[in-house]
Design a protein around this nucleic acid. Structure first.
Length: 322
DNA sequence: AATGTCCTCAACCGCCATCAG
DNA sequence: GCTGATGGCGGTTGAGGACAT
């Protein structure tokens, strides 16, 4: 037996709101507030609407200071960066864009931004294919470009994307890691010893229950104003960039903290957590870490998202450092 | 002008989390 | 701890407008 509906569907009006209905709802809420009960509200003010519908109408349209349409390039960047980091958690993304609603951002992404980025990616992929001197650091390395987001097309219903940048091999990459990367085949790179020690991280792989990195993860979560760090209960195996000041996280400045995924029991249905499905893992991932965007190294082992480090079948993916 | 197709976005649906009793 | 009510959210739908033929 399913749940009882929140309202009597036969006796509620559906479809677009009239200006009269808007006026009634708006004036009441502005004067008296919601009163903590959306379900009871429509009856109280004489609207033949479902309480949920009232709530949606208020939040997405009638609420003061709502902006519609006309997304700026800066907003595009923020949406892209956040989508990249946390996936389709529109409410969190909306919280970073004053005046924008999650519904608006979701619509904007689905109808425009995704296509825009895909188109750009196709173009760049074609250009890159023409360049015979493209440098591959690994057999599955992604095509590089400058300062652009890219969306892997071989994803399912959602897209991941990642800004692509030239690997700063000469100056920023620690010498040992440079050697490891240049002298190691792709398959070897899946052995975590190859990329150990991690220059900035504390612990690449530890199958123990938790690590002291969990608190750092919580800090990252705070950056995104995630309401409940326990969503990420079980997170461990994290590489944390100690030089990355989470307090100044700014998508526009290309500093992306990390995303997380549940660690244990990641397979099967559990593998469809928001972050994971969004990023479209190729395999079962235990965790991942994003490095600052402007110094990504792009590997794509088993379709792992680029510029990240993860674990599959208890084996770490290759790294991403700079 | 008529028709078909595509696009946009407001609104709905259903699931999950939270909370009170 | 259990249950039902409610809130919150992401995915999806479909009406209507824009555009193409």
């Amino acid at each position: 037996m399913g749940r009882a509906p929140c309202c009597d569907k036969a006796n509620v009006k559906r479809g677009p709101w009239s200006s009269d209905e808007d006026a009634i709802l708006k004036s009441y809420i502005q004067e008296k507030g919601v009163g903590g009960n959306w379900i009871a509200l429509p009856q109280k003010i004489g609207l033949k609407r479902c309480g949920k519908s009232c709530r949606l109408r208020w939040l997405n349209y009638l609420r003061p200071n709502i902006r519609h349409g006309g997304f700026s390039n800066e907003e595009d960047d923020i949406i892209c960066a956040l989508y990249m980091a946390i996936g389709s958690r529109w409410s969190i993304i909306a919280a970073q864009l004053p005046g924008r609603t999650d519904n608006d951002i979701k619509n904007y992404w689905n109808t425009k931004l995704k296509k825009k980025l895909l188109g750009k990616q196709r173009k760049e992929a074609q250009e890159a294919a023409r360049r015979s001197n493209t440098t591959n650091y690994a057999t599955n390395i992604m095509i590089k470009s400058e300062n652009n987001y890219m969306i892997p097309e071989a994803t399912t219903h959602q897209y991941s994307y990642w800004p692509q940048h030239q690997l700063p091999m000469d100056s920023q990459l620690p010498a040992q890691l440079q050697n490891n990367l240049m002298n190691t085949s792709t398959s070897d790179l899946r052995i975590h010893d190859t990329i150990s020690p991690i220059p900035f991280g504390e612990q690449l792989y530890d199958n123990s229950e938790y690590t002291n990195i969990t608190s750092d993860v919580s800090n990252y979560m705070d950056c995104f104003q995630l309401p409940n760090p326990l969503d990420f209960q079980g997170v461990s195996n994290f590489v944390v960039n100690e030089n990355h000041d989470t307090s100044v996280y700014n998508p526009v400045m290309n500093t992306v903290p990390c995303g997380v995924d549940k660690v244990n029991g990641c397979g099967g249905n559990d593998a469809t957590t928001s972050a994971e499905s969004t990023i479209s893992w190729g395999g079962e991932m235990n965790s991942f870490v994003c490095s600052p965007v402007n110094s990504i190294i792009s590997y794509d082992v088993d379709y792992a998202p680029r510029g990240m480090c993860g674990f599959e079948d208890q084996q770490p993916y290759l790294g991403f450092q700079y």
